[in-house]
C-alpha cells in the first residue's frame, strides 16, 4: 500500500537532460541482490513450472511475435554496422544488400580525422574537420566526473537523511524528494543564464555543474537502501568507538557496493547520452561532447548527399561504449528496473 510517489514524481528529473527520454531511470528499485531491501519476490521460485510447458500453437505464435519484435529492435543496430563498413558510392548503387557494400573503413577514418580533405570529399564526406577522439575524451570526462561526484555526494546526503539524528531530517528529505518533481525543461534556461554569468559557457565544467552534485532520485534510491541496513552492525561499530564518519566510510559504503554500482552505471549512461543541455552550453570543440558532435556532423552533410557511411560510423563510435558497458553489466541493469515503492 505504500505507493511511493517515486516513480511518478521522478519522471522529469531523473534523466536530467534528455527530454523525450525523461522517464529514464525512474522507478528503479534497489534490485533483488540488495539485502532484500526492495519489495521484490523472487520471480523464479514462483514460475519454475511454467517454462517447461510444451510448445502448443499458442506458444508458437507468441514466440513468433516476440521474434518479430526482437528483429525490429535489433535490426537498426545491424544496419548501422553494415552501413558504417560500406562506401558511399556503393551504398547509392546497391542500397538493399544485407551485407556491407564496397567494404571500406573510410567512414571511420573520416570520423577520427584520419583522411585528408580531398580523400574525404571524394568518398562522399563533407571535408570539414571532425575529430571524434576529442569528443570521446570530453564525453568520458563529463560522464566520469558527474558519476563519481554525484554518486558520492548523494550517498552522503542519503546517509544523513537515513542514519544521522538531527532536527529537520524529515523536512530536508521532503525537500529533496519534492525536487524530483521539477521538470528538467524548466531549469534549463535559468541554468544556462547562471552558467553564462559564471563565465562557464563552452567549458566542460559548465556542462557538468548542474548535475554534478545532485540527483534527487539518487538520494531517494540510496536512502531506501541505507534504511534497510541492519542497525545492530552499525551500533556495534559505534560502541567500539568508531565515529559516524568512519562508520559511513568503512561500513555503510562497503556494504552498499551493489546499489552504488547500479546507480553509478545508470548515472554514467544518462550523462553519456545527454544532449539538450550540452547543446546549449557547448559551442566549440573544446567542450563538445559526442551527442552534440553527432548532430553537428549530421548538419554538415555535403551538397552531393549525406555521408551515410561516415554518419553511421560516428553513431557507432558514440553508442559502442554504452553497448559494451551494457554487455558487461546487463544483468545488473536489467534487474534494477522495476518499482521499489509498490507492494
Amino acid at each position: 500500500m505504500t505507493t511511493t510517489s517515486a516513480p511518478a514524481a521522478d519522471g522529469p528529473r531523473s534523466t536530467p537532460l534528455s527530454p523525450g527520454a525523461s522517464a529514464d531511470g525512474t522507478g528503479i528499485s534497489a534490485g533483488p541482490r540488495t539485502n532484500g531491501a526492495s519489495a521484490h519476490r523472487s520471480p523464479r521460485s514462483r514460475r519454475s513450472g511454467r517454462t517447461r510447458r510444451r510448445l502448443g500453437p499458442g506458444r508458437l505464435l507468441a514466440w513468433i511475435v516476440m521474434i518479430v519484435i526482437l528483429v525490429i529492435t535489433l535490426f537498426p543496430f545491424y544496419w548501422m554496422l553494415r552501413t558504417a563498413l560500406s562506401s558511399n558510392t556503393a551504398l547509392a548503387t546497391d542500397p538493399t544488400s544485407l551485407l556491407p557494400v564496397g567494404f571500406s573503413l573510410g567512414g571511420f577514418e573520416r570520423v577520427f580525422g584520419l583522411q585528408d580533405v580531398d580523400t574525404a570529399v571524394a568518398q562522399g564526406g563533407s571535408g570539414a574537420s571532425i575529430t571524434f577522439w576529442r569528443y570521446l575524451l570530453n564525453t568520458v570526462i563529463v560522464a566520469t566526473a558527474i558519476t563519481v561526484v554525484q554518486t558520492f555526494s548523494c550517498a552522503m546526503a542519503a546517509y544523513a537523511s537515513s542514519r544521522l539524528r538531527w532536527k529537520g531530517r524529515e523536512t530536508v528529505f521532503l525537500v529533496f524528494l519534492g525536487a524530483m518533481m521539477i521538470p528538467q525543461i524548466f531549469t534549463l534556461l535559468p541554468n544556462f543564464i547562471l552558467i553564462k554569468n559564471l563565465h562557464l559557457v563552452d567549458t566542460l565544467l559548465g556542462i557538468m555543474l548542474p548535475t554534478l552534485f545532485i540527483s534527487p532520485f539518487a538520494i531517494f534510491f540510496l536512502r531506501q537502501f541505507f534504511n534497510n541496513i541492519s542497525r545492530e552492525v552499525e551500533e556495534a561499530a559505534l560502541i567500539d568507538g568508531a565515529s559516524k564518519v568512519r562508520v559511513f566510510f568503512t561500513l555503510i559504503i562497503p556494504i552498499s557496493t551493489a546499489p552504488l554500482a547500479t546507480l553509478a552505471l545508470l548515472t554514467y549512461m544518462t550523462a553519456w547520452n545527454e544532449y539538450f543541455w550540452s547543446l546549449m552550453v557547448s559551442y566549440t570543440d573544446s567542450s563538445r561532447v559526442l551527442t552534440v558532435a553527432l548532430a553537428v556532423f549530421r548538419a554538415q552533410s555535403p551538397n552531393t548527399g549525406t555521408d551515410w557511411a561516415g554518419l553511421m560510423a560516428a553513431t557507432l563510435v558514440a553508442a559502442a561504449p554504452m553497448l559494451i558497458l551494457f554487455a558487461l553489466f546487463a544483468k545488473r541493469i536489467v534487474n534494477s528496473i522495476g518499482f521499489s515503492g509498490i507492494k
Binding site: S18, G20, A21, D24, T73, L74, P76, F77, M269, W272, N273, E274, Y275, L290, T291, L294, A295, T315, A318, A319, M322, L323, F326
Partner: peptide
C-alpha cells in the same frame, strides 16, 4: 538495448 543509445543516435 535501444534504450542504451542516446536519442541523437
Amino acid at each position: 538495448t535501444p534504450y542504451l543509445v542516446s536519442n541523437v543516435v
